[in-house]
Design a protein around this nucleic acid. Sequence first.
DNA 1: CTCAAAATGATATGATGTAACATTCTTGGG
DNA 2: CCCAAGAATGTTACATCATATCATTTTGAG
Lengths: 153, 153
Amino acid sequence: MKNVERIVNHAENHCKAHGARLTNKRKIILSGLLEVGKAMSAYDLVDYCKDQFGESIPAMSVYRILDFLQEENLVHKLSLANKYIACAHITCDHAHGVPQFLICGNCQRVEEITINKSTINTLRRNVEDAGFHLVSPQLEMNCLCHDCVEHAA
Amino acid sequence: MKNVERIVNHAENHCKAHGARLTNKRKIILSGLLEVGKAMSAYDLVDYCKDQFGESIPAMSVYRILDFLQEENLVHKLSLANKYIACAHITCDHAHGVPQFLICGNCQRVEEITINKSTINTLRRNVEDAGFHLVSPQLEMNCLCHDCVEHAA
DNA sequence: CTCAAAATGATATGATGTAACATTCTTGGG
DNA sequence: CCCAAGAATGTTACATCATATCATTTTGAG
């Protein structure tokens, strides 16, 4: 779990750098997401924090904290699943493209990838051709992970 | 509204062709979605059917009917918005690619487009490279429609 | 230290969605 | 035609996801 700690520290610096505060509760939520390494619902996080950290954080606060963490790009929301997941690139210092998510419809595993720019640009062009402007190319795709494909076969 | 009727008839034939039944309630829900022409939540549909058609359809039934209509490819679910929208291509007889949706984050307008196959294939390859299998390339993209971009500017 | 702003808590409620079982409707075989 | 079986719909209860509102606590700048 040293690794989680390291990432949280990094996140704290990232926040400090522009005057945002990674408070204790916010650290706890972020740690939970990092430890679990999977997408969790807000209420899953309430339970997890209670069980693992002995911290009772009301759901309302969890939602607020998740909003904060999303604004800081430390966490992403998955609309397909109504769940939240820690950003896979918190510790990278360079700017990132908007991520895309592969969600296993069977076991709920999630992989965060970055699709190459030219593909995204093609997508963007398709969107512009339809008279819309692409605000964010964060995509969520219905997938099966390798294991689940195997077992289904 | 003749047009809606025509589309519903077409949908009915489509269902009959493989032994599925487009019952009266199902027609009403589909008609509602077609008339409105926008994405609606299940509960929006409950209200709409009550107001416009004098039909009280319980939410549970609306969900079941929406499931049916999705299986028939007459309706799509938008996870970004938790809403449902009539397929833009019900009356086309040829098979369609999986659709992509452009959702205006400001006015909620939705455009259904079909991205060209080669772009989808590139996406699919990206997914396979990450060890996942793309089940369905139905994408939902956070956009702004042309009007909202103008007004924001 | 003090005060204002930020963060968190408490409570209620709205919105979305499903489980489980009952009832009604349709339809094909006798 | 009738009726059994399956399909569709209704009813009720509840699970899950999310936000509005106002109260309280914490924090940091002056």
